[in-house]
Design a protein around this nucleic acid. Structure first.
Length: 420
RNA sequence: GGUGAGGUGGAUGAGAGGCUGAAAUCAGCAGUUUGCUAAACUGCCGUACUGGUUAAACGGUACCGCGGGUUCGAAUCCCGCCCUCACCGCCA
């Protein structure tokens, strides 16, 4: 949610920037300003009224002490009139606050100046591409066939137990999952992240706070009996750690969790094998940063992700998302894609974003600045990394005629150098 | 799941209809003093909205788990809910 005070003072600038995101309802900005104006004048009326009531109540107290019952009773009727009036103001104010909020929740975050114009993923800006695209041997396989050949994971078995998109990992396939999670966590801890294991279900308040509710309800698995939701990413529980807190900066969390996503509406080659599944493992990094530092932090996080991909010896590229492809809450997002050699396509494995105060405004994540003033902090997060597509590209890119070669950096975690 | 106790500022904890936005202690901040460390003393020290201002100072309102109610007046009384702790039951 954008801050109303910011909108009030920069309405035109905000509209111009939202246009970069192809946001159509720019009129909402003007509406917000008008409704806020009304809100404040009503607030003033109510406060003045309550002030009078408080004064009268004190007077009545004094009059009683002096034994002047008659005069006290007279003042009581004044109070009754004010009270009626106050009720009107209160209900009016409640409605107007609702109106304002419902406007604000529909306005996306303003994009950073560096965000390129564009509507589709094709218009994302490729910042850099690193690593050789491997030339595979004759008869190289896609990862779903590799999985069958070496019995690494089984999607049909998952269908029997749960449904499509719930893989069962086996043997070295299972060990590889565990190895990657440990590898990612250790790398994060090494550069100062605090490892946390959050709950894998969240309540409604948490889901609202990070913006999964109300509009993305269909993407989460729900447990209605208890009012819980399975987390679609550790971002949800981890970011909620700092909800309503005045924190010491910087805050750096790294969390492993399984992620559960309904992925309604997905189809075709996108969902083949591990390309898109309903349950997967991910290590998420989350930072809460000083507003003056948050873009440095974003670069630092991007570097961290890049380092992981290099250690895994995967060819990757980094994209700066265009306005149209960015998420609602983000001000600037870098996507990381690895090349999957057998599928001959790029797969998104990480998304690193700065939300500026968009999340923290709703979450009320604040810090004390140099002048002891309490201000909203900036929040950032990124995947470091999500496993399935990393596994897909590891299997495909590192395959040889005699098996799959495990990158050096990972061998200490897997305990084996080759899957054969 | 059952029974009991309880939720007050960063922490401990008093308050039991008006003198309470809230004692006291600790922590924190600023200062005074003493060679250093430490101690002592003095002052400050919740959040949100809002008026005011270049910014402040200063002012108003709300908030004592959450939501209602009683009353001229509620942290304090009443009702509902949520949560925490202890014990019992069940259990990896």
């Amino acid at each position: 949610m954008l801050e109303i005070a910011v909108i009030r003072n920069n309405a035109e600038d905000i509209k111009a920037r939202l246009a970069v995101k192809n946001f159509k309802e720019l009129n909402l900005i003007d509406e917000a300003v008008v409704v806020d104006e009304k809100r404040r004048s009503l607030q003033k009326l109510l406060d003045d009224n309550l002030n009078k009531q408080n004064t009268i109540a004190k007077e009545i107290g004094d009059l009683f002490k002096q034994g002047k019952k008659d005069e006290a009773d007279k003042r009581k009727s004044d109070s009754a009139t004010l009270k009626e009036e106050a009720k009107q103001y209160e209900s009016g104010l409640a409605k107007i606050e609702d109106d304002l909020k419902s406007i604000l929740v529909r306005v996306p975050n303003t994009p950073h100046k560096s965000v390129p114009l564009g509507k589709t993923p094709e218009e994302n800006e490729v910042i850099k591409q690193v690593g050789e695209i491997p030339v595979l041997h004759e008869g190289a396989l896609a990862h779903w066939d590799i999985a069958k050949k070496y019995d690494l994971f089984d999607l049909e078995l998952g269908v029997k137990i749960t449904g499509a998109g719930f893989p069962v990992y086996k043997g070295k396939g299972a060990k590889l999952q565990r190895a990657l999670v440990s590898f990612f966590l250790d790398n994060a801890v090494e550069v100062g992240y605090l490892e946390v294991i959050p709950p894998h279900m969240v309540n409604e308040t948490s889901a609202f706070a990070t913006g999964q509710l109300p509009d993305k309800e269909g993407q989460m698995y729900a447990i209605p009996l208890d009012g819980f939701y399975m987390i679609p990413t550790a971002e949800v529980p981890v970011t909620n750690i700092v909800r309503d807190e005045i924190v010491e900066l910087p805050v750096k969390f790294a969390a492993y969790s399984p992620c559960f996503r309904r992925e309604a509406g997905s189809y075709g080659k996108d969902v083949r094998g591990l390309n898109r599944v309903h349950q997967f493992e991910k290590v998420e990094i989350v930072q809460v940063a000083h507003p003056d530092k948050s873009y440095e932090v974003l670069e630092e996080m991007a570097k961290h992700v890049e380092g992981l991909l290099q250690k895994l010896e995967l060819p990757y590229r980094i994209l700066r998302l265009c306005g149209g492809d960015m998420s609602f809450a983000s001000a600037l997002t870098y996507d990381f894609e690895v090349y999957s050699a057998a599928q001959k396509r790029w797969l998104e494995v990480s998304s690193v974003s700065n939300f500026e105060t968009f999340q923290s405004n709703r979450l009320k994540v604040r810090f004390r600045d140099e002048n002891k003033k309490i201000r909203l902090a900036h929040t950032l997060n990124g995947s470091a990394l999500a496993l399935p597509r990393i596994v897909a590209s590891l299997l495909e890119n590192h395959q040889a005629a005699d098996g799959i070669n495990i990158p050096k950096a990972l061998q200490g975690y897997t305990g084996f150098e080759k899957i054969s």
